[in-house]
Design a protein around this nucleic acid. Structure first.
Length: 553
RNA sequence: GCGCUUGUAGCUCAAUUGGAUAGAGCGCAGCCCUGCGGAGGCUGAGGUCGUGGGUUCAAAUCCCACCAAGCGCGCCA
């Protein structure tokens, strides 16, 4: 990555300056370069002299000049200038930029990959919706965030495992099973069978009961208890299958589907609580068992085992994270939760700390609320009360690509309106088509070249010298940096912005530069190489976002 | 009341985590098709960065207070 190279060059220059005695031997702040907003300032800039000014007591401009003077020439750098109040600006060489086209073509779909993660094992747990109902739009946001992050982390050389935690053991599942029995009875047995007060009122429960018509003989013959148990298994199985299918429709798959129940079956639940007890964080009081989170700086303690002996959701989550860190030994764990779990974040980190694991190894991403809108009409989504617009309906209506892009065009921690009208518009209003259109356009150019039997494999990229061409290359070179920043900040929305910028620069190039031309065969070949490289970068970006890169539209 | 998140152009959102004149898309006012896909390109107008203090060479970004919105503060998940 050119950015890293520049940083290394800068660091070397500072050391040389110090050794020559032209700069005091002070501890270096983190050496960094950034992209100036103003193109006139060059491709990269560093404010290092400004940061060194205080520690050294000299004028930033003088420091900048000393460092700039010590930079040894390199094939990448064209000019180095010093600008007030103390910036060092770098401009890249045009012929070096042009040569990167060949590098991208060689790298092909591995272009953009970086070695940030050093094969560290990262677990990404996301969606993990209760298998008591269909997924809604909020789950979709988590699913898209998670799967995109997984793609990016993998491209950044992390060893990634995607996991869905299936809550198949809690009270919610009981309520679901009892609701299902009620609907079943109402349908095929006693019409006046009452829905439980804490039941799931959604019509999908009725649909599910109808789907199980063939089981009538079995179910109606059972006692209420065993019928509930039977429906619990059956309902769980059906719901999980449906959730899996809905996620696949959105292009989201998992490596592991982890069952909550297994935490009990494998003894992890007991082990985790024993460990905390051993460390003095578990106490019995008021008839229940508590996790003493106040001992770790939390506002209040939390119940782990209810007075009736049953485990809370928090207790199994403790066991689950014990499993992640102690049992499976992940280097890092990233959980993606909905905004309604906000309050759970700090105590979960406290738990991890109590295990003796550095809490930073657990990162929790909160995805804020999504409100669904159809033009003016606002629709709030809630699983327990009545009918909902499911994720599946949204995917079917607007398409998986548009759905994914929409979720990715906002950062996770800002609330968003998902406007169905807008997302499905196949027009200028919809950036999805703009980006994919750029890819299809390139594909079309390459088809033309093929038709005319132009072999551009020997194209000479040094013919790429004009501003639109070099701008396109500059933008393509940003992909590794985007991957890096997304991996570091866990903010995949930057990909969506990058995709749009890349498409914009390409369209600009396209209108200014004829690619396949009769009058200059060499230039045609060079430009074919350029667009072929642009296609690789665009496709890579789309694929990281889990979207398709269409050849035609 | 306490905690977390958010507040930036008419609208929807960015801002490389403290850098130079705060940027995109849509919308608005105009302009560009005898060429590879016009689902495109170009120009312009539009900003007290919620408010008020503070920190420093430099603040949308960090600190404090306040205002507004959302979420949470269960022996629900």
């Amino acid at each position: 990555m050119i950015k890293q190279k520049l940083i290394a060059i800068l660091r070397q220059a500072v050391e040389d300056t110090q050794q020559q005695g032209r700069l005091p031997l002070v501890r270096l702040p983190e050496v960094s370069v950034e992209h100036p907003q103003d193109q006139g300032h060059g491709d990269y800039a560093s404010s290092l002299p400004l940061k060194l000014a205080r520690a050294t007591g000299s004028k930033p401009l003088a420091i900048a000049e000393a460092i700039a003077g010590a930079i040894v020439p390199s094939p990448e750098i064209d000019t180095i200038t010093v600008a007030p109040p103390g910036f060092i600006n770098f401009t890249l060489k045009g012929d070096w930029l042009a040569r990167q086209v060949d590098s991208i073509l060689v790298a092909d779909d591995s272009y953009g990959n970086i070695d940030l993660g050093c094969r560290q094992r990262v677990q990404l747990e996301f969606v993990s919706a209760n298998p008591t109902g269909p997924l809604h739009i909020g789950h979709g946001r988590g699913a898209v965030l998670g799967s995109t992050l997984a793609n990016v982390l993998a491209a950044a050389d992390y060893s990634v495992e995607r996991e869905y935690y299936v809550n198949d053991a809690g009270k919610q599942v009981d309520a679901f099973a009892r609701s299902l029995l009620a609907r079943y009875q109402q349908q095929y047995g006693k019409a006046d069978f009452e829905m439980p007060a804490d039941g799931y009122a959604g019509s999908y429960v009725i649909d599910l009961a109808r789907e199980l018509e063939g089981e009538k003989a079995t179910i109606l013959a059972k006692s209420e208890t065993s019928a509930t148990e039977y429906l619990r298994q059956l309902g769980l199985e059906r719901m999980t299958r449906q959730i899996k299918a809905d996620l696949e429709a959105l292009g989201v798959t998992f490596d592991v589907w982890f069952n909550e129940q297994s935490l009990y079956d494998d003894g992890q639940y007991q082990q985790a609580l024993s460990l905390l007890k051993e460390k003095g964080y578990i106490e019995d009081k008021e008839g229940a068992t508590w996790f003493i989170s106040t001992a770790l700086g939390e506002d209040k303690d939390n119940v782990v085992v209810r007075s009736d002996g049953s485990a809370t959701y928090f207790a199994t989550d403790i066991a689950y994270h014990y499993n992640k860190f102690i049992e499976r030994r992940f280097d890092r764990v990233i959980d993606i939760w909905g905004a309604d779990h906000q309050g759970h974040v700090s105590r979960m980190k406290a738990v991890v700390g109590a295990f003796g694991i550095a809490p930073e190894r657990l990162q929790i991403l909160i995805s804020q609320l999504v409100t669904l809108r159809r033009g003016e009409e606002l629709v709030r989504v809630s699983k327990r009360s009545g009918d909902i617009i499911t994720l599946r309906e949204v995917i079917d209506e607007v398409g998986a690509d548009a759905c994914r892009f929409f979720f990715l065009s906002r950062s996770a921690d800002s609330q968003m309106d998902f406007d169905l009208e807008l997302a499905k518009q196949q027009s200028l209003d919809n950036p999805v088509y703009y980006v994919q259109y750029a890819h299809a356009r390139i594909a079309s150019i390459l088809r033309l070249a093929e038709q005319r039997e132009i072999d551009y494999s020997d194209g000479d990229v040094s013919r790429l010298t004009t501003e639109p061409e070099l701008s396109l290359i500059r933008k393509m070179l940003l992909l590794p940096e985007v991957i890096e920043v997304v991996a570091l900040t866990l903010g995949p929305h930057r990909l969506a912005y990058y995709a749009q910028e890349l498409a914009t620069v390409f369209h600009g190039f396209y209108t200014q530069c004829r690619v396949v031309s009769q009058d200059d065969e060499q230039l045609t070949k060079a430009r074919l190489k350029l667009v072929a490289a642009a296609k690789i970068v665009l496709a890579k970006t789309l694929h990281l976002m889990g979207m398709t890169a269409p050849e035609t539209m």
